[in-house]
């Protein structure tokens, strides 16, 4: 009983930590993106990197902001996909949105852009095709 309470307490504590950190992270990333937009450094690798990080944070946040995440990841993929990393985030966002065919397409793009992750991509494709959970 006491252990159950303990783990619930830790869970709540972690959620609080996560929420506050997500807010902080978003604030910093928003500032970075805004400053790059202001000086017309939109077509830079740094911009793509910042957008990917923000998309990742929006997927991890509670509640998730899938729409914004997808928008950021797609924009990053257009600028510079950072060796396919943008497509990995697009896949996560599409999967969270329930768009499995879209996620499969994004994973295929990821594998094409970065052949060193072909093995991982294959496993992901198998998981998505079988309709398995994300864990």
């Amino acid at each position: 009983m006491i252990y159950h309470l303990f783990y619930s307490f830790i869970g709540i504590l972690f959620s609080t930590f996560k929420a506050s950190n997500t807010g902080k992270k978003l604030k910093l990333l928003n500032r970075a993106i805004q400053s790059l937009q202001d000086v017309e450094l939109v077509q830079t690798t740094a911009m793509a990197h910042a957008l990917i990080l923000r998309a990742d944070v929006n997927i991890d946040s509670i509640p998730q902001n899938i729409e914004q995440s997808l928008k950021d990841a797609m924009q990053a993929a257009e600028i510079d996909d950072l060796n396919g990393r943008a497509w990995r985030v697009v896949a996560d966002a599409k999967e969270a949105n329930g768009d499995v065919p879209g996620a499969i397409e994004a994973i295929s793009n990821w594998a094409m852009k970065n052949p060193s992750f072909a093995g991982k991509a294959k496993k992901e494709l198998e998981r998505l095709s079988s309709g398995g959970s994300s864990i």
Binding site: L13, F14, F17, N21, A32, L53
Partner: peptide, 30 residues
């Protein structure tokens, strides 16, 4: 501006590390 933006990104990534480390310490302590 680019350097400042990269520093902001680094700080955002550091938040994640701090969160995980704090979580582990609090769990172990409790």
């Amino acid at each position: 501006v680019l350097m400042a933006a990269i520093e902001d990104m680094a700080m955002a990534c550091q938040c994640k590390l701090t969160c995980t480390i704090s979580y582990i310490i609090v769990t172990m302590y409790t």
